[in-house]
Each structure stands twice: as structure tokens, then as C-alpha cells.
Design a protein around this nucleic acid. Structure first.
Lengths: 332, 332
DNA sequence: GTGCGCAATGTAAACGTTTCCAAGGGATAT
DNA sequence: ATATCCCTTGGAAACGTTTACATTGCGCAC
């Protein structure tokens, strides 16, 4: 039999109301009684029943995270950031991951209803219509890496554009006169932004150079295919920038097989700074994304939205990336 | 204002009790009324208030996962396995990660009290005394990868011993007459088991060969140091088995720097099959651990413990590993 | 026809909190 | 001395469910 507030009250010879007030830090209770109640509660190992509390306060002290089936390191870094921030605020984290399609995501979202005070959503399947259909009005939510541009929802993005822009510039600055790009999936928001960053940097810093884009889909295999296509006929560009690291790794393999050496014959760069990037030969120049920061930031935003429900949402700043120069780009 | 069971009852012209029974699949309700109630509930988008339900049923339909600050891929695979199994059972997942020390873990464990029906615990800081002090009697828990041998708690381990045993045998079978081992942290349970597997396999299959163990601590740097030590004086063994992949990667670097080529001069193997293993040159032979299965399995066990509280705990089977042969071991 | 049993439904208590409102009591101002 | 106010405390309602128990109505056996 668990110990309840009533047990504490009886032991302390006060009413349950006083116990509640004392433990929740209300002002109108004497220091002396508070002392007594606190110590007795501790002695009895009293833990307030969270369900009972939620029932009346309409707060669960829990944030839900809705995540797709995503890549290892990204996932854990994101959760780490969210978790750290949540813990700092005394919030719990309810996770639902591995959602492959829209239906699964909808089911998961609805299942969380009533169990969370706010939501963090990272999913390629989610758009404004989806949210209006599945997210209760009253639940604040922050969308991560989403193309959504609605004042109704809070969105937090990585600065894919800026990162790609900076990387393209780095490759040009390193003396590679022509830079080709391996793109990501067309419907992927991150991929679009990265391509835009590449294109605009090319226009800005190498207006005479040819803009060359080979299609990929973020998979290693697509990077390999792109690499073969680029190497064919010995007419490869001086540098290749892949929209993510996995494709860069695949591309590297294709180049090696084709007898091209990186970075002497052709420089190579990726995006994400996955752990593998450091260990391929040559080590991969890439763009590092502070994923944990993304998670932390997102949690802070949703926490604020919960505290001040009718606050105007400020435009979300994007999260900065940084160019990490390694051997594959030949710069140093 | 959220819609409650009362609203549904009013609309369907029945009592709240009937609504509850109909929605919870009790037998004693006519098909006709159940139909009516179900459709009305759907129309009103009624979602039972989970806190209210928990208050009376004493069930939260939530499992807590207490995890340390752990490595990317392992973490996400584990969560994926747990999450999949939880979803299949209609359970939610409350995650608390990144616990660096015992105190943090204790705080997190206590914070979950009352919010979860059962716990999954993976933490090097947790022992029997810790659990007795911080885990309520009534909360079923499954410990992952723990040395704990108490009938009081359910433990689920990876077959580190078997995996190491098999790998050692593989290296010997491939014709490498002497195999050295790079050990992990002394207080780490996984590391101990792996070393035992190595030692016993050596005794069994190469009784005349020297058993050589170099100390490491699972870090890449310690693997590098071990590699240097082994390469020194040109007296390196024919094969080296590192207790985890990161050390193997470090060792590989040391060998390469020392002018030893892998696998011609010396074969190399690791343990874990982290993603990097595939991408180093040469690709690393290693032991694959089905981490998602570990998570899935653990969740199943805790779910069963919740359903049948006073059931005798069956001895936990360990989870099988498999040897993954790549270029670094020279076998094929 | 009466009584009995069973199936379907309703009534209300219970779960453990928080919080509104009332009440007690001491200090202060009149 | 009395009225007033404020500070501390207590009583009780409310939150939204589930479920034990009561009630109703109906069919069936006698």
C-alpha cells in the first residue's frame, strides 16, 4: 500500500490541504509547519501520485517526442539534447520513434494525447493539415527540420542553407575551380536547403564555373552511383560536395575504384559529420550539425510555449552549422 | 473544454458506466448499445483521460527506460527495439538517458516513480543495493547487461562470452596460431565476459599457444596504445582480438603507423559491429550484437512481469551474437 | 400466475490530489 | 473594548475514470 498525502497529514497532525501547500512551496504556511511536514514526508518516503495530480492540474510534466525511423547517431544526439533540457526543467520525456509512414505517425500522435503537455515533432510525413487533424488545439508543439511555414506552429530548423553555402565556399577557396553537388531526395526539406546553399554560393563566388548537380537520395548506394557517373570518361570535376556524409562515403568508394585519388585528383565533402566521417580514408571534410543543441533548443521552446500559452511565437532562429575540414578536401 | 465520458454518455443516452464498459470491451453490454456508444465516441473524438484512468486502475501503460550516457548507435538501436515492442503492446515509453553517475541515476529512477508500470534499466552504476534503495518493491524491472545475479531482479544479457569464444575460434581456424586480446575496463561486465570467452576458447582450441592480454578501456586511444605495445619490437602476434570495435579501430591505426599491414602481417577483430567497422580500411571483422532484439526482448519480459506479478522469474536466456567476417581477419 | 435467475444497465463510491472558501485567532487601529 | 484585517489552517468540492453493488426487466420453470 503506497503512502498518500493523507498519511502524511495524519502523521503531521495537519490537514491534507496544508501538506499540499507545504510541499508545493506555497507561501501561506509557517516555516515551522513546513519543516515538520517536509521531514515527515521524507521519512515516510511520500511521493505524490502523479496521476491524481495531473487529473486536477491538467498538467503531466511530460513532453512527447515523435520521431521517424532515423539514423543512429542523429537520433541519440537529439534525444540526449532533449533529455538534458527536460531534466533541467523537471520534465519527463515520452518517446515514440520509428514511424515509417503518415498513418503510424498519426496513431502515435493520438496515443500521446492527454499524456503530454507539449510535443516535439520531427517527421517528414507531417504537414499543416496533418497537425490540424491530429494535434489537439491546446497542445503546444515544436516542429523540427520542417518546411512548414505557418505562424500557427513553432518550427526549428538547422541552417542547412548556411552550412552548404559555407562548405561550397570552402571548396572554392581551397582552389578547386569547379564543384559538383550530389543532391538528396527531392521531397526532403534538408536536402532542398542544402542544394540551394550550394547553388547560391556557386553563383556568388564562382559565377563562371558550371553548376553541376547529380541526383542522389541520401543513401550510400546513391552516392556510389553518383560517384561512378562523375568519374566516367575522366571528366570529373575538381571537387564534389555531397548533400550528406553517407553519399560522400559511397562516392569515395566509387572514386577509389575508378582510380581517382582523393583529394589529389578530386576533393570531396559531405554534410552531417556522422562518426564514420572521421574514420574513412581519407577522413571526410564535412559540415557539423549540433544536433544535441537542436534538441535542447526545441525543448526549451516547447516548455516556454507551455508556460505562456498565448504568447506570440517568435520567429525561430535556425541553428548554426560549422565546416569541419579534414583530409578529403585537400585544404588544411 | 475537452470531451469527457459524461458527454458521450449524455449523447448516447446511457450512463457513464455503460460507456466505460462498452469502450473497454466488457462482455455485459449489448452489441447494439456498444455500436451506438462507439460511434458516438468516435464522432465526438472522445479520448479517455489517462490520468483519471491511472488514478483508479493504478496502471499507467508506460514503461520507463533508464539509460546511461551511451554510444550513438547502440542507444538508438536499443530504443528502436524497445519502442517497437512497446507499441505492439500499446505501451508508452518514458525515457531518461545520459546518467553519468549513481546519484543522477537514483534521482531519475525516483522521478519516474508512479509514472511507470515497469522499468528497463541499463546502467553500470546500478547494483542490488541501489535497486533496493531506489526502486519501489511493486515496480517490476528488467536489468540489461548487468552482472547482477539476484533472483529478485530480472536480468537480460548479451552473450558476450559466446561471441568472444566464437570469434577467438574463428581467428584460430583461419590459421592464425597466436591470438592476443585487448581487454576492456576491469569493472565492466561485458568486458569481463568477453575476456573469459577469449581465454576459454584459447584453452580449448589452442592449448599450446600463449594467452596474451593487453589492457584497454574501450576507448579508441587505449586501443591505439595497445596496438603500439603489441607492434613494438616486431614481435606482434598473428592475430589481435579487441574487446570492442573502437579499440580495434585504434589498434588498426597503430599497426598502420608501425608499418604492419592488416590482415597480411596481423589479423584484427573487434566486438559490437558499430557502423564504423564496415568503413575502416580494411573493413573490420567483428561480433554483431542484435541490440534491437535486446530491447525488444527486455520490454517483453517487463510486460510479462507486469501482467503476472507473482510469477516466478525464469532464468533469462542470453542473447546470441554472430561473428561477422570482413577483410581484417584475413579469413573469408 | 408467481418466483427465480440472468442479462443489461444505472448509481455511486473510490482513487489522491489541488484549490476555493470558510473559519479561527492574533495583532492593530479606533 | 471592539471592529477590522491578515495570516494560517481546515473542510470539502472537483478532476474523469472504473467498478462494486443495486436495480430493472425479461424469460422460463414450476
Amino acid at each position: 500500500m503506497a503512502v498518500t498525502i493523507r498519511d502524511v497529514a495524519r502523521e503531521a497532525r495537519v490537514s491534507v490541504a496544508s501538506v499540499s501547500r507545504a510541499l508545493n512551496g506555497h507561501t501561506s504556511v509557517t516555516d515551522e509547519t513546513r519543516q515538520r511536514i517536509t521531514s515527515i514526508a521524507a521519512r515516510l518516503r511520500y511521493v505524490p501520485h502523479s496521476a491524481a495530480r495531473s487529473l486536477i492540474t491538467k498538467r503531466t510534466q511530460t513532453i512527447g517526442a515523435l520521431l521517424p525511423d532515423l539514423y543512429g547517431e542523429f537520433f541519440s544526439e537529439l534525444i540526449r539534447g532533449i533529455d538534458l533540457a527536460a531534466r533541467a526543467r523537471g520534465l519527463h520525456l515520452l518517446v515514440s520513434s520509428s514511424h515509417g509512414d503518415t498513418d503510424e505517425a498519426a496513431t502515435a500522435l493520438r496515443a500521446m494525447q492527454g499524456r503530454v503537455d507539449g510535443m516535439l515533432i520531427l517527421s517528414p510525413h507531417v504537414d499543416a493539415a496533418f497537425l490540424r487533424a491530429n494535434l489537439p488545439e491546446s497542445t503546444p508543439a515544436v516542429l523540427l527540420n520542417s518546411a512548414l511555414k505557418s505562424p500557427q506552429f513553432d518550427v526549428l530548423n538547422i541552417d542547412n542553407y548556411g552550412g552548404a553555402h559555407a562548405m561550397t565556399r570552402h571548396l572554392l577557396d581551397a582552389g578547386h575551380t569547379s564543384v559538383a553537388f550530389i543532391s538528396g531526395p527531392e521531397d526532403n526539406f534538408d536536402a532542398q536547403q542544402r542544394e540551394r546553399g550550394y547553388r547560391e554560393a556557386m553563383t556568388a563566388f564562382a559565377p563562371k564555373a558550371a553548376v553541376k548537380v547529380v541526383k542522389g537520395d541520401f543513401s550510400e548506394d546513391s552516392g556510389y552511383a553518383a560517384g561512378r557517373a562523375l568519374a566516367k570518361g575522366g571528366k570529373s570535376p575538381r571537387a564534389v560536395f555531397a548533400a550528406n556524409d553517407m553519399m560522400a562515403v559511397g562516392c569515395l568508394r566509387a572514386f577509389t575504384e575508378a582510380g581517382l585519388s582523393v583529394p589529389q585528383d578530386v576533393a570531396l565533402a559531405g554534410f552531417d559529420d556522422i562518426p564514420i566521417a572521421r574514420y574513412v580514408t581519407p577522413a571526410l571534410t564535412t559540415v557539423r550539425v549540433r544536433i544535441a543543441d537542436l534538441g535542447r533548443n526545441a525543448l526549451e521552446r516547447v516548455a516556454i510555449a507551455i508556460e505562456k500559452p498565448n504568447q506570440q511565437r517568435r520567429a525561430a532562429p535556425t541553428l548554426a552549422c560549422e565546416v569541419v575540414v579534414r583530409a578529403s578536401s585537400g585544404g588544411h
